[in-house]
């Protein structure tokens, strides 16, 4: 891990995140509190900037917002599917381990992809190979291995690739 240069200006994302979280936690919108939030949102990234390592940044924020909504919709759909499988006859389910070859190379997009897979239709990410080339996934019900892998790659991975521009 290489430490980055200490910069006096935090990244926009960190600033906005800390600002909003502080306002939500205290739930008061007076001028004094907003000033305090600004100070904290500037001070905390400055203090911890020595700890952070270089990661890839979001290149297309609009696409990221769109991705969030797609994810939310898929979470709802996946829950209805899983609910039906759980309440139905569990002996007809065909569980399986899948190996998904990764096109992504950076740790952050891979983490996001693994989290996405854990939250959506009948799949939980189990392990990433050491060379970061394969993601192993456990699926609750596999109809066709290749179709499932292709749908994950096309629906989530290609979008993440576009967002991070790698």
């Amino acid at each position: 891990m290489t430490p980055t240069n200490r910069s006096w200006i935090p990244s926009t994302f960190n600033f906005v995140l800390l600002f909003v979280v502080w306002l939500l936690l205290t739930n008061s919108f007076t001028i004094g509190n907003i000033l305090l939030a600004t100070f904290l949102a500037w001070g905390i990234p400055f203090l911890i900037s020595g700890l952070q390592s270089e990661t890839s940044r979001v290149k297309k924020p609009l696409k990221a917002a769109q991705y969030l909504f797609i994810l939310l919709w898929d979470i709802i759909i996946s829950n209805v599917v899983v609910a039906r499988q759980v309440l139905g006859n569990t002996h007809h389910l065909q569980p399986g381990f899948l190996a998904i070859p990764l096109d992504l190379t950076d740790p952050l997009p891979i983490t996001l992809l693994a989290s996405t897979i854990s939250l959506t239709p009948g799949t939980v990410s189990t392990e990433v190979s050491v060379d970061l080339k394969t993601l192993y996934v456990h699926a609750l019900n596999v109809d066709d291995e290749q179709i499932l892998i292709a749908s994950i790659k096309q629906r989530y991975e290609s979008r993440l690739k576009e967002i991070f521009g790698c």
């Binding site: 996946s78 569980p95 939250l119």
Partner: peptide
């Protein structure tokens, strides 16, 4: 166990 993992994480 691996199948049990699915229900709590999602639902």
């Amino acid at each position: 166990f691996y199948m049990r993992l699915h229900a709590p994480t999602k639902a």
